[in-house]
């Protein structure tokens, strides 16, 4: 396990460096937006990984409520935290792209707003995990996770209706509809690299959560056996 960590971390970082090189140097410059468009290679994969993490969180939470296994709770905790990190990058890189291209930092459009609400929900989830001390954390967090996930489509629906007057200015199906092959190639490699990064994070965070659990129970077992008199 330890060896796997030692190997996988540098490999992933190297992969990320390579794909960044592809994104910054190799990929052709976009005609209308110019170089700023290269943010796209980070922005979209981050969003994809965040979504993946929140989905894993939902499945793991449901599984926990059903089977009550500590491992699925650890997975839920890990994926929520990693999801929040990726979602944060998504929310930061978005405005950095929007400012030079649209001339504004932010617009309350459906996708942006939904993402922000999503981020808020999972930050609440992490706060709940922190404040619900003791053996109850897992159940309460899992219940809230189900609520959060169920809320996402409703949030999206409502905000889309709320903001129909805005043309959806988000990329993907934009002006020329679709990316040039050279761009698509770089984008897909980036997507893979970010997914690997996301999986690595979740896996490491999961290990950490399990280690912490093991430490707690080791302390507990010591209290059970050691101090007896």
């Amino acid at each position: 396990m330890k060896k796997l960590t030692l190997i996988s971390v540098p490999i992933t970082v190297a992969l990320l460096a390579y794909t960044s090189y592809l994104a910054l140097i190799v990929a052709p410059t976009e005609q209308t937006m110019g170089d700023v468009q290269r943010i796209f290679y980070y922005h979209v994969p981050s969003g994809w990984v965040a979504g993946l993490c929140f989905f894993i969180n939902f499945v793991a939470s449901a599984l926990y409520l059903w089977k009550r296994s500590p491992a699925s709770d650890a997975l839920a905790a890990a994926s929520a935290e990693v999801g929040v990190v990726f979602c944060a990058v998504l929310l930061i890189t978005g405005p950095l792209w929007a400012r030079p291209v649209w001339g504004i930092w932010w617009t309350w459009d459906a996708r942006l707003t939904t993402t922000l609400v999503l981020w808020l929900i999972y930050v609440s989830y992490l706060v709940l995990r922190r404040f619900a001390a003791g053996g109850q954390t897992q159940v309460l967090a899992a219940a809230f996770a189900i609520f959060g996930f169920a809320d996402v489509p409703i949030v999206y629906m409502s905000i889309r209706w709320f903001r129909t007057q805005h043309p959806s200015p988000v990329m993907g199906g934009g002006e020329n509809s679709g990316l040039a092959p050279a761009m698509l190639h770089v984008f897909l490699i980036n997507l893979v690299a970010f997914t690997v990064l996301g999986i690595l994070f979740v896996w490491l965070r999961y290990q950490l959560q399990m280690q912490e659990q093991a430490l707690e129970s080791a302390h507990a077992q010591l209290a059970l056996k050691g101090v007896s008199r």
Partner: peptide, 29 residues
């Protein structure tokens, strides 16, 4: 402002956040 500044900012932020988070996990482990 030069559009390239935004590009740089975005890439730097992403790297800082991801590497920072990775470091935090490894440290805690």
């Amino acid at each position: 402002m030069n559009p390239i500044t935004f590009l740089k900012a975005a890439y730097i932020v992403a790297w800082v956040v991801y590497l920072g988070y990775l470091g935090r996990i490894l440290l805690r482990m």
